[in-house]
Amino acid sequence: MGVKNDFKKEFQASNFNLEHDITPDFYLGCWQRNRSCVPLLCVRAILCAGNIAIVIASWAVLANVLSSYGFWWIYLTHWGIIANALTAILAFAISLKVYLGGPIDSAFGLPWYIKLYWFLFNASVPVAFMITVFYWTFISGAFDIPGLDMTLDIFVHGINSVMMFALLISARHPTRLLHFHHTVAFGIFYLIFNLIYYFAGGLDPNGNHWVYPMLDWSNPGPTIGVVVGVAIGLIILHGLVALLSLCRNHLSQRYRKENTFSVSG
């Protein structure tokens, strides 16, 4: 019943904004029983390093395979792993700031950098899941990139979601249902780029006039259908992330109440 009631509260108009009364929720892990920022700092350090490593490896290996570093930027996957890395960097920076300087003052609302992190989190986690599902369902094998390394392929289209799931499951801050527009905004931003790239005459590494075969604007009907389907999918995935956050918080609160003690951090 607790999860159900909290789910109903998510539809309050105030939840449309990036505000939250409990600032420590952004730098304390949901599973820890103390008030130290160190446990989540350590987790975020690992996730930060991992996400940065994925971006660097993808850039170093795939950009070379594509014969031009410019081609690396045309793929949604790479936009996604950059968003993942930025989210993880901000998460780590917030925890590190608390570790070095003490609790964050939020008397006048959440600081801008926490709001930016929250926005990126809302956008990057569902998008990471979407990239993984969409790639292995529709794109993998649909067109070939010569020399593509399978290990790297798994990291940028699979481990990317594992990393963001770990960030989600270790955090304590909520994921608001009414923040779905953050997720959709990321998709719209890429869509605008994709349209501009197509009508400007951009090509993929194989000389095709599309970046992805299902986003071929010379055949707008099916392409628009794919865009609408992806948008609906992103909203559904955002709702799933919000539900996972609610379940995570209820389970972790029950776990923490079993043995609560205070440790300075």
Rank of each mutant, 00 (worst) to 15 (best):
M1H: 13
M1S: 13
V3P: 07
K4A: 10
D6W: 11
F7T: 01
K8L: 13
L18M: 14
H20F: 15
D25T: 08
D25P: 07
C30H: 09
R35E: 11
C37F: 02
L41M: 14
V43G: 07
R44A: 09
I46Q: 04
L47T: 05
C48L: 07
C48R: 01
C48Q: 05
N51Q: 15
I54D: 04
I54P: 05
A57Q: 03
A57D: 03
A57G: 03
S58Y: 05
V61K: 12
V61P: 00
N64Q: 14
L66W: 06
S67F: 13
S67G: 10
S68D: 15
S68F: 13
Y69E: 05
G70L: 14
F71G: 06
I74P: 00
I74D: 06
H78F: 15
A85Q: 04
A85W: 04
A85R: 01
T87F: 01
I89E: 09
I89A: 14
I94S: 02
S95I: 03
K97E: 12
V98Q: 07
V98E: 08
G101N: 13
G101D: 08
L110A: 05
L110I: 07
Y113K: 05
L116A: 15
Y117R: 08
Y117G: 05
W118I: 04
W118R: 01
L120A: 04
P126L: 08
V127L: 15
F129D: 00
M130S: 07
F134A: 14
F134C: 02
F138R: 07
I139S: 02
G141R: 15
F143M: 08
D144Q: 13
D144I: 12
P146E: 05
D149F: 01
L152E: 05
L152H: 02
I154D: 00
I159H: 01
S161V: 00
V162W: 06
M163Q: 12
F165P: 01
A166K: 00
A166N: 02
L168G: 02
S170V: 06
T175N: 03
L178I: 05
H179R: 06
T183R: 06
I188K: 04
Y190T: 11
L195D: 11
L195P: 12
Y197M: 06
A200K: 14
G202R: 12
P205S: 11
P205L: 10
P205M: 10
N206S: 13
N208M: 09
W210C: 12
V211A: 08
V211G: 03
W217I: 11
N219E: 14
P220V: 15
P222D: 07
I224T: 15
G225S: 04
V230C: 03
V230G: 00
I232N: 09
G233T: 02
I235A: 15
I235F: 10
L237Y: 03
H238W: 00
H238Q: 06
L243D: 02
L244M: 14
S245Q: 02
S245K: 02
L246T: 01
L246F: 06
C247F: 13
R248M: 15
R248H: 09
R254I: 08
R254H: 11
R256A: 07
K257I: 01
K257C: 08
T260G: 00
F261R: 14
G265M: 04
G265D: 10
